[in-house]
Design a protein around this nucleic acid. Structure first.
Lengths: 196, 196
DNA sequence: TTACAAAACTAACGCATATTAGTTTTTAAG
DNA sequence: CTTAAAAACTAATATGCGTTAGTTTTGTAA
């Protein structure tokens, strides 16, 4: 009856994925049903299978799309000629901006990936570990060059990644802070601390 | 047939709750089944109902137990006579220690509370907002007394809470960092930054 | 040993799930 | 207008869920 509407710049499949990201974020992957997704798209559940292979395929697509974006950005930064501390700042800003602009998908990639099926689960886990490792190497280089304090590099990476991830709590809270202020204050905090 | 074994210092109900926390953390609340919980306790699923009222009651118990602990601690700190920055440090250390010592329950309270049913969902949400608000007030007092940098207080609170929460990723990673080093380095990072 | 309660069991209910099969409607091109 | 493919539908299947009812076993105290 009703057809799935898609914006001009996106295929119908992409529309389904976007809506799925919203739903997976809101209810969690296991609790989100295909019927509910179908209703949100104005369609019966079986019709979705004209566009997608399965529910789990939706999760896979979302998670690996996000992973790819972060990986590509990190590659760019690694190959740049900036000082280490500038690289770190650049990565933090990318995380914040991506978190804010592609909220649903990033949230799902952060929280629901544990529901991936094998072999995707292992692959994603490996990606995460690899990404962390690359950041640790970056921090170690900064310590070596005496740009960065000699804290345990993995703890530093963990603190940064976690802080940035926490923006999901800001989303929706309409505090009187602009995205730019938020980004600057968080970068400032993570690089220079809060003690005067 | 088999009976639920409980350590000497805990009732059987507490044993069920502990195992439920582990399961809810591992699979997520919606995907965790009572049958699976029962198997982990060496029992058939209906037997669980001799100890508990329902699956959702388990989630409620876990979430509000954790909430209560954090609230009590914050109350203690608020009423102490330390400098603001020492209060903030104390709170950070409490979060880290509690996260590490009661990992499963804290994880569930952090991630699965959105599956609480009304009115518990709203109550928990209110608690969270209240807790954040009390921290914001603390930070504002520190800014007032010029102990703390004048960043947006909510962003500061968000950064701290999120960073600390991220310890869930450390758990299981057996890096060569002791809990004490981890705690000290993270406190150092959050208070003084990483830039030399 | 008897009696009672605690705690386990088996069987089953009602419901929701993802997905498939088969069919009909809609859309667009020749 | 015809035709063929795309996209929707209805109906149904198998599976798993939380939970209840009713019964049997186990443990404990009189």
């Amino acid at each position: 009856m009703a057809k799935i509407k898609s914006g001009n710049n996106s295929t119908k499949k992409e529309t389904v994925i976007e809506q799925a990201a919203f739903l997976f974020k809101t209810k969690g992957y296991p609790a989100a049903s295909m019927r509910e997704l179908a209703i949100a798209l104005g369609v019966e559940a079986p019709s979705l299978y004209n566009y997608i292979g399965s529910k789990s395929e939706l999760l896979q697509t979302i998670c690996f799309n996000v992973a790819s974006e972060f990986s590509v950005n990190l590659g760019r930064v690694e190959n740049s000629l900036e000082a280490t501390i500038a690289k770190v700042e650049s990565i933090i800003r990318f995380h914040i901006q991506t978190m804010l602009s592609r909220f649903n998908e990033v949230y799902v990639a952060n929280h629901e990936w544990k529901h991936l099926e094998e072999p995707y689960f292992s692959e994603f886990l490996h990606f995460r570990r690899d990404y962390e490792k690359r950041l640790v190497i970056l921090i170690e280089a900064g310590i070596e060059k005496k740009e960065i304090k000699n804290l345990h590099p993995y703890v530093t990476v963990l603190t940064i990644l976690s802080a940035v991830r926490g923006l999901e709590f800001w989303h929706g809270h309409k505090k009187n802070v602009t995205a730019q202020e938020l980004e600057n204050d968080m970068v400032n905090h993570l690089l220079h601390g809060i003690v005067k």
